[in-house]
């Protein structure tokens, strides 16, 4: 019995103490991309980044629950999300500190929280990916994929989570709730394949099990880099359905290393760091590079945070 207690005490002792030259970052960004950024930050500042990663299928559940559970005594300094919905949820819960990074002043106001709790940067877009060996004429708009000619040939990801959820809410803002639900019902009637994540959508298309899929640009670029016969069919420019999803970063209220957290945010939101992410395998476009007359409609952040009831209807419309 003493052995059990001794073993547990050793574990506790191992974790006691917090160093001043570190910053704790909870991130839903894939570890392959984020690790390079963390290493570069350490090299530039000498501050070690202690990351907590999520998993693709966990859909940021772990990180958000942790941050909320830790609110009395936070362990995390910075929350860096690959999208925006969960960050806005944390803001609503009062878990974020107001901080406007000095390096982010040139980021357009539409990508920054008006209250200054979070800042958007490096973006991905929602796109249609198609198999170049099987599709000669890809659709020109999103609505076309619900047409009978694509029956059984289209894949999408779980609508309850991640960028697919954000995309559906953005579409409901553009089209209205009922037309989006009707579109999903039409997809269901068209035998759409619903899979766990956007990368699986890409894989189905790359393997020819589906001809078309709705996914993110980063997934397509990763697939193309490894030689998949896929291409982007339409990014919504023609029909005004472009959905741009920024990364978001925020300082946690009561962070244990607030100064290091601010330094990390300043560093992360630099133009140069955006360039690094652009050069990486996901090729996330610097937000500063987006045209001023961007065709994408502005995202209603409040609607995004309150989108859960609509997403449940979307899930039902897809028969899940």
């Amino acid at each position: 019995m003493k052995a059990v207690l001794f073993g547990f005490s050793l574990l506790l002792a191992a974790g006691c103490g917090s160093r001043t030259d570190e910053v704790v970052v909870y991130t839903s960004v894939d570890d392959l991309y984020a690790k390079e950024i963390f290493a570069a930050f350490k090299q530039a500042t000498g501050i070690r980044v202690l990351p907590v990663f999520d998993t693709e299928e966990a859909k940021t559940l772990g990180l958000v629950h942790r941050i909320l559970a830790e609110r009395a005594k936070p362990q995390c300094d910075v929350f860096w999300s690959g999208e925006c919905a969960r960050t806005i949820l944390l803001k609503k819960q009062g878990a974020l500190e107001t901080y406007r990074p000095s390096t982010a002043k040139d980021i357009p106001a539409r990508w920054v929280d008006p209250d200054g709790t979070w800042t958007g940067f490096s973006v991905r877009s929602r796109v249609l990916v198609y198999n170049t060996a099987r599709v000669q004429q890809p659709p020109k708009s999103l609505k076309e994929i619900a047409q009978p000619e694509w029956k059984g040939r289209v894949a999408i990801a779980n609508p309850l989570f991640g960028t697919t959820a954000t995309h559906l809410i953005a579409l409901s803002q553009l089209w209205g709730d009922e037309p989006v639900l009707a579109f999903l019902r039409a997809l269901r009637a068209n035998d759409v394949r619903v899979v766990g994540g956007n990368s699986h959508v890409r894989d189905l298309v790359a393997r020819g099990e589906c001809d078309l899929g709705l996914t993110d640009t980063d997934d397509v670029y990763v697939g193309k880099a490894r030689g998949d016969a896929i291409a982007i069919a339409n990014s919504g420019f023609e029909s005004g359905e472009l959905c741009i999803i920024p990364n978001t970063a925020a300082l946690i209220k009561g962070a244990p290393h607030p100064e290091n957290g601010r330094r990390f945010l300043d560093w992360l939101l630099r133009r140069e760091t955006e360039e690094m992410l652009y050069q990486g395998p996901a090729q996330q476009l610097p937000i500063r590079m987006l045209p001023k007359d961007l065709q994408a409609p502005p995202m209603d952040w409040e609607r995004l945070a309150a989108g859960e009831p609509f997403l449940l209807k979307a899930k039902e419309a897809l028969g899940l």
């Binding site: 894939d30 907590v52 990663f53 998993t55």
Partner: peptide
């Protein structure tokens, strides 16, 4: 913070 298990890493890698 700062720790990742092999299974977790594997799960993330399967994303690619």
């Amino acid at each position: 913070p700062g720790r990742l298990t092999a299974s977790q890493h594997l799960f993330n890698l399967m994303h690619y």
